[in-house]
Computed example of a mutant assay.
Amino acid sequence: MRPIQPELIGAIERTAKKLKDGGSSYQWGHMGACNCGNLAQELTPFSKAEIHRYAMERSGDWNDQILEFCPTSGYPIDLVIQRMLDFGLTLDDLGHLERLSAPEVLERIPFERKQSLSQNKREDVVFYLETWARVLREKWEKQQSSEILERVEKNSIPVY
């Protein structure tokens, strides 16, 4: 992942909340309503139907779309993916989201829950998104602390 943007953390948190509260439809086999599709709705101006339609212009699921990604292809799904990447995500992040498989997120999930985690269960996706958002928020806070310390050190007058 590139430098963490607070907008990304907020989008992940909103996605989890909408899924948890039933404000978003969830269907793992639908390109606009699955794990990546729901986050794409938060990060882009595209609707569930538009994302699905764009993805259907090429064959395959989100993992296939990620593998085929080319920012200059002219395929609308590549525009959706690029907009997601513009928020600091990587293609690996998207692949992990679709499979609920990012090692840094999984290490925060209790063993019993991790063993039963299913990429196509709404409640598991919500739990994963909430955990991922916490991981990113903690990393972002550390990133901010480091930047503040660097600025203080850079602007400090040395004492002899």
Rank of each mutant, 00 (worst) to 15 (best):
N38E: 06
I9D: 01
P45W: 11
E153Q: 13
A40T: 04
K154H: 11
R137W: 04
I9V: 05
K142T: 12
R122E: 04
F87I: 05
V105Y: 01
D21P: 06
P158D: 15
P6H: 15
K121H: 07
E50F: 09
D78S: 06
Q119R: 13
K154S: 10
E107W: 09
M31D: 03
L149Q: 09
R122I: 05
L8Q: 00
D86S: 09
S47C: 05
P6F: 13
E147N: 14
V80G: 03
L43P: 01
F87Q: 01
R99Y: 12
K121L: 09
R58W: 09
T15G: 05
G29P: 09
D92N: 08
D78K: 07
A133N: 03
S101C: 10
N38F: 02
I9W: 01
S101F: 07
F127D: 12
Y54W: 05
E150L: 11
P158A: 15
S116L: 13
F111D: 15
E104P: 03
N63H: 08
R134F: 10
I77G: 00
A11G: 03
W62F: 09
I81Q: 00
K121Y: 07
R113V: 11
K17E: 11
C34T: 05
E138T: 12
S25N: 14
T44L: 03
N120S: 11
D78F: 08
R134W: 09
Q144C: 12
R134A: 07
G22M: 02
A40W: 02
S145T: 15
Q41I: 05
